[in-house]
Design a protein around this nucleic acid. Structure first.
Length: 251
DNA sequence: ATACCATGAACAG
DNA sequence: TGTTCCTGGTATC
């Protein structure tokens, strides 16, 4: 989302934008925005906030299936698949499909969403101690805490599995049994990996830490065997999501 | 043509 | 805890 926000700043901010909803489910809102100007775009965790003139804000969360597609051409191709919103300027076209959230809100709505989110490793204003202190006082497994957007914003199933594998931490260990230094290390590792992710436009984990690995290499996520030691990876379900861990490397 | 699956999260009970 | 909602790529019939 931080990458999308940066892209939207380049392509939309300061321009007059035509807004439509080819799929129809954002038609009323699109009509309200159509012909207006985008003032700023910001992201916090998996949420993106697109601020318009007249105090309007478009709030987007991609969920599992959502995606943005951008075309930097004067003559865009017709919408591909179900397009919830199309933003069109004289030089570029941005399409949004499949979002979990796409809604019109205002500054108060943005504040309400952000109040529910933990610190985001990609934000300059993030307070890592809020994450660290929360983990160190929680009896919940670290594998759950990392997926809890109130504890830390932006981490999903891939980063959860990979960062715990790189740190050598068992996902089922309660947060309060970890050292402060280990939890600070998790935060720092997430900052590093997620920044690379924004730059590259994809999740890079094992491929970042070990340059001999291909960029798309994973240590445990969706793997049958551990990328480091070769042992069989434990695949279990935690809170309805697949959880991967190496029983050897993450004791 | 149909089934299934996935990097997410809200909601009912 | 189970159900529901997004979409589209791939596998299967």
């Amino acid at each position: 989302m931080h990458r999308a926000a940066a892209q939207q700043r380049r392509v939309l901010v300061g321009r007059t934008v035509a807004v439509t909803s080819p799929q129809g489910r954002f038609a009323d809102e699109a009509a309200l925005l159509d012909g207006g100007t985008v003032v700023a775009v910001d992201a916090h965790g998996k949420h993106l906030f697109q601020s318009w003139d007249h105090e309007l804000v478009v709030h987007v969360h991609l969920g599992l299936f959502g995606r943005y597609r951008v075309q930097r051409t004067v003559a865009p191709t017709p919408p591909r698949g179900q397009v919830r919103v199309r933003w069109q300027t004289d030089g570029a076209t941005l399409d949004l499909s499949g979002p979990t959230i796409c809604a019109l809100t205002d500054a108060a709505g943005v504040a309400a969403v952000r109040a529910r989110l933990g610190p985001d490793p990609l934000r300059a204003d993030a307070d890592p101690d809020r994450f660290v202190d929360r983990v160190l006082t929680s009896g919940a497994p670290i594998g759950r805490l990392l997926m809890d957007q109130r504890v830390i914003a932006g981490v999903g199933n891939v980063y959860r599995a990979e960062v715990l594998h790189l740190a050598g931490i068992d996902p089922m260990r309660a947060g309060r049994t970890l050292d402060r230094a280990s939890v600070e290390g998790l935060w720092d590792l997430l900052v590093e990996l997620m920044r690379v992710g924004v730059r590259r436009g994809r999740i890079v984990t094992a491929g970042h830490v070990d340059p001999t690995q291909p960029a798309n290499a994973r240590g445990v996520y969706h793997r049958r065997t551990c990328g480091r030691c070769g042992r069989a990876v434990d695949r279990t379900v935690l809170d309805g999501r697949d959880l991967y861990a190496c029983p050897n490397c993450q004791r």
